[in-house]
Design a protein around this nucleic acid. Structure first.
Lengths: 105, 105
DNA sequence: TTCTATAATCAATTTATATTGATATGATAA
DNA sequence: TTATCATATCAATATAAATTGATTATAGAA
């Protein structure tokens, strides 16, 4: 019986990490924010009017993704510019790819 | 300014569907169940002892994935055999691949 | 019929997450 | 200094999801 799904500690951690990542991006608002950011760095003031979200709500979703490491901030004058952390995006992109590898064709 | 992330109805729905899918699999227990099922069809009685989960908890996670269409059931005698719905797996696999397409290298 | 195995369901609880409204911070401009 | 802009944070609330315990349903065996 294959045990690698659950009894191997490093695999369990990998899954729990992947699950957390999916909960981070498994939210309509955050997915839309990411979609905007894929187009390039944006400040909060550009994000929330376009997504029709409250400023504080937008900030809080940005903070969730920032804390997870999915995005970066850069401060300039009074503005905070957010951008995608490509390294982390790549990491999870590959984990997902691996998880689904036998189901793409 | 690129608007396709949020103002195009069909894109919004696509994202909200993808977000829901990620919430479905963004759970350690469900991810571990799926990992088991990738190995082939299993009945509940094979799943919960291996994952050290309560039987009813296992059933409830299976139901969540079944309702979403991610897995199939087949009844035989008193046992319910669950398996991965490859078509649905493929669908989301491709959506994810597309979402991450510029971040794999 | 009664017992047992397999599994689902329900109600209750716990835990986590999202959202809102109000306020605070810090920088710059007037 | 005061006003304003961009943003973050906090407390409160709302909503949703996970988990548990107990019960139910059903099929087959004794």
């Amino acid at each position: 019986m294959k045990k690698s799904c659950f009894s191997d500690k490093s695999k369990i951690n990998k899954y729990s990490d992947l699950a957390k990542f999916m909960r981070i991006i498994g939210d309509d608002n955050r997915l839309r924010i990411l979609c905007l950011l894929k187009d390039g760095e944006k400040c909060v003031c550009e994000i929330y009017p376009n997504l029709d979200m409250a400023q504080n709500l937008t900030s809080s979703h940005l903070k969730i993704m920032l804390d997870f490491g999915l995005i970066n901030v850069r401060q300039e004058w009074k503005k905070n510019y957010y951008s995608i952390n490509k390294k982390v995006f790549k990491k999870y992109s590959l984990l997902l790819k691996n998880f689904f590898k036998n189901y793409e064709k």
